[in-house]
C-alpha cells in the first residue's frame, strides 16, 4: 500500500529530524519538546507495525510521565544558554570520535548478527498467532503468566532503585513546622468559633 509506505517515511523522517534537533537545539526546553516529538513519531511507527499496545504505553510512560519530569526540571533550571554553548567546538572532536566508534561497533554487530537455528524450538512459552489473540492478551500471558517470576524480580530491582534515590536525597532538617493533618481533621466549629453578642457602644 502506498499510503502505509508514505506514512512510514513521514514518521521516520520526522522522528530522525526531531532527534537531530534534540541534540542541536540551543534552548534545553526546545530540546525536550523535540524529544517528545521524536517519541510521538516512534509511537506512530509502532502503530504502523501493528504493535498498538506498545505505542500507547510509549506515549503514556515516556511522553506522559518521563518527559513531563524532564520538562519540569529543565524549565526550573537557571542557566545561561550562551555560556553553556562555549565549550562546544572544544569538545566536538572527542564527542565525534566517540560517536564514530559507537557507529562502527553497531555496524559490526548488525553485520555479523546470526540467530541460532534451534532458537525457535527453545521458546518455553509459545506466542499465539496474531489472529487468535490481541496484542494485550499475548503480552499479558507472557509477562504475567509465563515469566511472572522475572517480572516480579524486575519489580524488586525498581523498588530498590527507588529506595536508593530516596535515601540519597532525604535530609532531616531541624526546626521545620509540619502540618498535623489529624489535628486539622479533628477540629470542630464549636471548638474554635464563639458567637458573642456585643452590645452597641461597648467592647467585649
Amino acid at each position: 500500500m502506498i499510503i502505509q509506505a508514505l506514512a512510514f517515511y513521514l514518521f521516520a523522517f520526522v522522528a530522525i529530524a526531531a532527534g537531530v534537533m534534540v541534540v542541536t537545539a540551543r534552548n534545553p526546553v526546545h530540546s525536550v519538546l523535540f524529544l517528545i516529538l521524536a517519541f510521538f513519531n516512534s509511537a506512530a511507527l509502532f502503530v504502523l507495525m501493528g504493535a498498538e499496545f506498545l505505542a500507547m504505553i510509549l506515549v503514556v510512560v515516556y511522553v506522559g510521565a518521563v518527559a513531563v519530569l524532564f520538562l519540569f526540571v529543565v524549565m526550573m533550571l537557571d542557566i545561561n544558554f550562551v555560556e553553556m554553548r562555549q565549550g562546544f567546538l572544544q569538545y566536538l572532536p572527542v564527542g565525534g570520535l566517540i560517536g564514530i566508534i559507537l557507529l562502527a561497533e553497531l555496524v559490526l554487530i548488525v553485520g555479523t548478527w546470526a540467530v541460532s537455528p534451534e532458537a525457535a524450538t527453545l521458546v518455553t512459552a509459545p506466542i499465539p498467532p496474531p489472529d487468535q489473540a490481541s496484542n494485550i492478551h499475548a503480552l499479558g500471558r507472557l509477562i504475567y503468566t509465563h515469566y511472572v517470576y522475572l517480572f516480579q524480580a524486575s519489580g524488586m530491582v525498581l523498588l530498590v532503585a527507588m529506595m536508593g534515590a530516596i535515601v540519597l536525597t532525604l535530609r532531616h532538617r531541624e526546626g521545620v513546622r509540619r502540618q498535623k493533618i489529624e489535628q486539622q481533621l479533628a477540629r470542630k466549629a464549636e471548638d474554635t468559633i464563639e458567637v458573642v453578642k456585643v452590645p452597641s457602644g461597648s467592647g467585649i
Binding site: 499496545f53 500507547m56 506515549v59 503514556v60 511522553v63 506522559g64 513531563v68 490481541s134 494485550i136
Partner: peptide, 17 residues
Amino acid sequence: INVGFLYLFAISSLGVY
C-alpha cells in the same frame, strides 16, 4: 480500536503539555 481506553488515557496524560 482494541486499545481504546489506553488511547484515552494517553491523550489525557498529554494535557499537561
